[in-house]
């Protein structure tokens, strides 16, 4: 049996790889004298990042906090509630589950122009796109999760004479949590994509998608990369946050056990 790697290695290797890529990038740009209008060096991007934190912050608030996160929360709550409601009716479940599964696989980003037409250029339309994109993965995963208790466990609850609500809150929802968090992880990355895509169809003069498309036009490529850095960090942190909450909520699940 091979020894499992130490935590230090687990962090050092990927971080080292990332640094190596950045170093190679910097050297490539310097040695081949690649014009900054095509590919700026990481150092140039870092300088631009530090110099325009105010603009980056405004875009971050507009796209991430107002658009993506609002939509993510609303969509997740809606998906969760609808799943719990549908779950009570086998007929609805039999009808809606295939439809929802199908819709979840469709390119839902395509509704972005329609939402922009309905809700205007500001963050409301971006949040609306995110709500729809997030709704189906959460719905499908929650429904699957609510099925995850077996007969034995439900019978036990019945012998306790637990009501529907008690069974739901104390047995079935906790059992569904690993599935719900799976849906949330998918949704966290979808939310950012949705919020940025919707900005390509029209936005006020702030926001990450707006900034990227205008700066490409002005050849401000270093600014574009600074925005990409923000979006990459945001995406990773958002995903990490969901994973952290998951670890706290589903500590009992086999996939979370360590050691």
């Amino acid at each position: 049996m091979r020894q499992s790697p130490s935590t230090a290695m687990k962090i050092a290797l990927p971080v080292g790889f990332g640094l190596l890529v950045i170093l190679l990038w910097e050297m490539m740009v310097k040695t081949f004298a690649i014009p900054p209008a095509i590919l700026p060096a990481p150092s140039a991007i870092a300088t631009r990042f530090a110099a325009s934190t105010d603009i980056l912050w405004i875009d971050f608030v507009q796209t991430v906090l107002k658009g993506a996160v609002t939509g993510l929360i609303l969509g997740a709550i809606a998906g969760l509630l609808v799943a719990i409601l549908i779950d009570r009716s086998p007929f609805l479940k039999a009808g809606l589950l295939p439809v929802a599964n199908f819709v979840a696989a469709l390119p839902i980003v395509g509704i972005a122009p329609i939402m922009v037409m309905w809700f205007g250029f500001d963050w409301q339309s971006k949040a609306a796109v995110v709500v729809v994109m997030v709704f189906f993965p959460i719905l499908v995963n929650t429904l699957a999760g609510l099925q995850d208790t077996d007969r034995m466990q439900q019978d036990l609850m019945r012998t306790y004479s637990a009501s529907y609500l008690q069974t739901l809150l104390k047995l079935r929802l906790p059992a569904a949590m690993p599935f719900i968090f799976n849906g949330l992880k998918i949704s966290a990355t979808l939310a950012l994509i949705g919020a940025i895509v919707a900005e390509y169809f029209g936005s006020p003069t702030r926001g990450m998608g707006f900034r990227i498309s205008t700066e490409v036009g002005r050849l401000g490529i270093d600014m574009v990369w600074a925005e990409i850095a923000v979006s990459a960090l945001t995406g990773t942190v958002l995903y990490g946050l969901v994973a952290l909450v998951e670890r706290a909520v589903t500590f009992w699940h086999p996939s979370q056990r360590r050691g």
Binding site: S213, V216, S231, G235, T236
Partner: peptide, 15 residues
């Protein structure tokens, strides 16, 4: 996969 690819897209075109 957590990096929104839409943000990268214009850069991929330029490159």
């Amino acid at each position: 996969q957590t990096i929104p690819v839409v943000a990268l897209a214009p850069m991929i075109v330029v490159l």
